[in-house]
Design a protein around this nucleic acid. Sequence first.
DNA 1: GGTTTTACCCTAGCGGCATTAGGAAGCTGA
DNA 2: TCAGCTTCCTAATGCCGCTAGGGTAAAACC
Lengths: 202, 202
Amino acid sequence: MVRAGLSAAKVTEAAAEMADEVGLDQVTISALARRFGVKDASLYSHVKNLRELRVRIALLGGAEMTERIAAEVAGRAGKDALVAFANAYRRFALEHPGRYAATQMQFDPEEVADSVALRRSVELTYGMLRAYGLSEPDLTDAGRLLRAAFHGYIHLELSGGFAHSRQVEDSWSRSLDALHVLLENWPSHQPPEAGGRDERMP
Amino acid sequence: MVRAGLSAAKVTEAAAEMADEVGLDQVTISALARRFGVKDASLYSHVKNLRELRVRIALLGGAEMTERIAAEVAGRAGKDALVAFANAYRRFALEHPGRYAATQMQFDPEEVADSVALRRSVELTYGMLRAYGLSEPDLTDAGRLLRAAFHGYIHLELSGGFAHSRQVEDSWSRSLDALHVLLENWPSHQPPEAGGRDERMP
DNA sequence: GGTTTTACCCTAGCGGCATTAGGAAGCTGA
DNA sequence: TCAGCTTCCTAATGCCGCTAGGGTAAAACC
């Protein structure tokens, strides 16, 4: 009897690939075991349960995504940085829809508490926004709106909300133009006298 | 033997309620049958399968949502309309997360082809944007960005992306300020000489 | 090199879910 | 009243997540 030679890492990588190919919700323990030519129960030596498997996919995907964004943004500022960030974000999501979907799960705080990628991605966003001259609390507000716009756009695109036409590219890049204008004209707000605003999550 | 007196409409309404309470993915045929005190198989007299049930929830939720938005936007224009639209959108999504989630499914084109609500919601958006002086192709681009921003924001909020603090309200209303500024300063584009742009979906 | 220990993978089995087939009992209209 | 339709049932299939417990390959130790 030859062993399959699995490991948590291999299982996660295969699961991520499978998620990109057939959708995150099609990634089941059974299907994954089938892909490895192994019985379902065998996978439980490497992964606690289905939820943990998905969290692993998310952490893997999140790390990869942040890495790619960081590489593209490096050395840029202002609109250059914004466009590089946004395009890297979108390209990753379109090329790896399963991994991307996984990053959108609801996590228990401690599941992602020690995620370097998460902290890094917040830093990247804030660095970009500071180049636009923003500071708290606008930093937080603008960051949220940017994340929302990016995610919302990709979500609509992935779910077929608009046709998969060449036009989406134009629309996307014009939205980036618009967001650039938005950040340059951000309606600033003074932080309130008393503290409390500082504790906001990004 | 007393009959339960079910109907497609009653089943859908109960399913929508259940989705709001426990999450769309917890709405199963079994759970719903249990709620009615009926066997699983009985529901198949009223609903073709699980997918159709979810589509029904989506259509119901979409209609309700559009209705509420339309009521709020009626008689307003400019920033008033934008804020009314956005707040009605967000409030519905937060009060009815299950129905809202259902509206985000991927549909076959003919499943929603005859949805009045969908057409109406597009009209509402476009009317709002025309009041900002936009015309095609900016109408389409701005509409997409708005939908993306709204959906993205609510999605982040619902999935706990940021803390459930009072601050989210501030952040949201400042994002609306920013979007208003954006629409007033939208970087316009000329339509290309030859046709083709007109066929874009919203 | 032989032995012990570990860790991997298996068989077996539980309960939950979606779905279908076919039958019985209520309701409706002639 | 009785035929016919609808609603609900029982029964069964197959897929899935997950657990318990056992055997063996591979690694660790002497």
